[in-house]
């Protein structure tokens, strides 16, 4: 474990709970893409199948349980409890256009042609594009609530910190995973446009609004 990965995991945890609290407190999921949340739930479920078979540490197992539980809870709040506030008119990204190609790629490009490894690879590839429905929704509505932009900033930062973690681990542990690094770069690059808007607007107290 290194500081980049620890801060990255905490940033990821913060993002998930900022979103969960926003929906719970405001009793509304306006401006939030339910499709992205479904993809994130799929990412965690397919990645953490080794939760019971492969014990790494208490921290590792605890975080996996928290990530799965909180993301499933978010999907539950959005599609069941506060379904009336779900903005389905703007959350129209066709996620099958993400899941199918990613599924195919996971079959073709992986470290090991075994079910667990292919599911892990699918999860890594899917996570890199899972935020697209959310970014697409913001581009359609033209703006995002400030709390939602904080959520996105923490979520985008987590994988950027993981890139630093992989640089650290490469030099100090000789650890290198090309699939995770390439997907992590794609994932972080997708946030660049948002990071620019966040830093130039939200940091100065303005609302995040995309140029019309």
């Amino acid at each position: 474990m290194n500081i980049f990965r620890l801060v990255g995991d905490l940033s990821h945890l913060l993002a998930i709970f900022v979103l969960l609290l926003k929906i719970w407190k405001s009793r509304s999921c306006a401006g939030v893409s339910g499709k992205s949340q479904i993809l994130f739930a799929l990412v965690f479920i397919t990645r953490y199948l080794d939760l019971f078979t492969n014990f790494i540490s208490v921290y590792n197992s605890l975080m996996k349980v928290i990530f799965i539980a909180s993301t499933v809870a978010t999907v539950y709040l959005m599609y069941i409890k506060f379904k009336a506030t779900y903005d389905s008119n703007h959350d129209t990204f066709r996620i099958e256009f993400l899941v199918v190609p990613v599924g195919g790629l996971a079959f073709l490009v992986n470290h090991d042609f075994t079910p667990l490894e292919i599911l892990w690879t699918f999860s890594i590839y899917l996570e890199s594009v899972a935020i697209l429905p959310q970014l697409f929704m913001i581009s359609k509505t033209g703006e995002a609530e400030t709390i939602t932009s904080h959520y996105l900033f923490a979520l985008g930062s987590y994988r950027a910190l993981y890139l630093l973690n992989w640089i650290y681990r490469y030099y100090f542990e000789g650890y290198f995973d090309l699939i995770a690094v390439v997907a992590g770069c794609v994932q972080t690059i997708l946030y660049c446009d948002f990071f620019y808007l966040y830093i130039t607007k939200v940091m100065w107290g303005k609302k995040l609004s995309l140029p019309a």
Binding site: D50, I56, F67, E117, Y175, F176, D177
Partner: peptide, 10 residues
């Protein structure tokens, strides 16, 4: 292999 197969990251 580059990644020793053991997935120790979240």
């Amino acid at each position: 292999k580059e990644s020793d197969g053991l997935k120790d990251e979240l």
